[in-house]
Amino acid sequence: KQVQVGDEKYTFDTPEEARKFAEKVAKEKNLKVTEKNGNFHVE
Rank of each mutant, 00 (worst) to 15 (best):
G6S: 04
V25D: 01
V3Y: 03
E17H: 04
L31G: 13
T11P: 03
K1W: 15
F40E: 03
V42S: 03
Q4P: 01
K20I: 12
N30S: 08
G6Y: 07
N37S: 05
K27Y: 11
D13R: 10
V42H: 03
V33Y: 07
K27D: 07
K1M: 12
K1A: 15
T34P: 03
G38S: 04
D7R: 12
K9L: 15
E28T: 07
N37F: 07
F12G: 00
D7E: 11
K32S: 11
Q2Y: 15
K36G: 04
V25I: 13
L31N: 04
D7P: 11
N30V: 04
N39C: 12
V5L: 07
N30W: 06
Q4H: 15
E35C: 15
F21P: 00
E23S: 06
Y10S: 01
V42P: 03
A26T: 02
Y10W: 11
R19A: 05
V3R: 00
N39G: 10
F21K: 00
T34Q: 07
K32Y: 10
K27C: 12
K27Q: 11
N37Y: 07
F40C: 05
N39K: 09
V25C: 13
F12W: 01
H41I: 15
K27G: 08
K29Q: 13
G38D: 04
E28N: 07
K9D: 04
F12L: 02
T14Y: 04
G6T: 02
G38W: 01
A26D: 02
H41L: 14
E28Q: 08
D7N: 13
V3Q: 01
H41K: 08
Q2S: 13
E35I: 15
V25G: 00
E17C: 09
K32E: 07
A18N: 00
K20H: 10
V25S: 04
N37A: 06
K9N: 09
A18L: 01
E35W: 11
Q2T: 15
V42F: 06
K32C: 13
V3D: 01
E43M: 12
E35D: 06
N30R: 08
Q4S: 11
N37G: 09
V5R: 02
N37T: 04
V5S: 03
T34G: 05
E16V: 05
R19E: 03
T34M: 09
T14F: 05
V25P: 00
E16D: 11
Q4M: 15
V5I: 13
E43Y: 14
G38E: 04
T11Q: 10
E23Q: 09
E8T: 13
R19W: 07
L31M: 15
F40D: 03
E28S: 08
V5Y: 10
E23A: 08
T11F: 14
D7M: 12
E8L: 14
T34R: 09
E16I: 05
V25K: 06
V25Q: 06
Q4W: 15
Y10D: 01
V33A: 05
E17I: 05
L31K: 05
V5E: 02
T14I: 04
Q2R: 08
E17W: 01
V25F: 08
E23N: 09
K1P: 14
G38C: 07
E43T: 12
K29A: 10
D7H: 13
K29P: 04
G38A: 02
K32T: 12
H41V: 15
K36S: 10
K36R: 13
E17Q: 09
T11L: 12
T34D: 05
K9H: 12
T34L: 10
L31R: 05
E16A: 08
A26W: 04
K20M: 12
G6Q: 05
G6I: 05
Y10R: 04
Q2K: 07
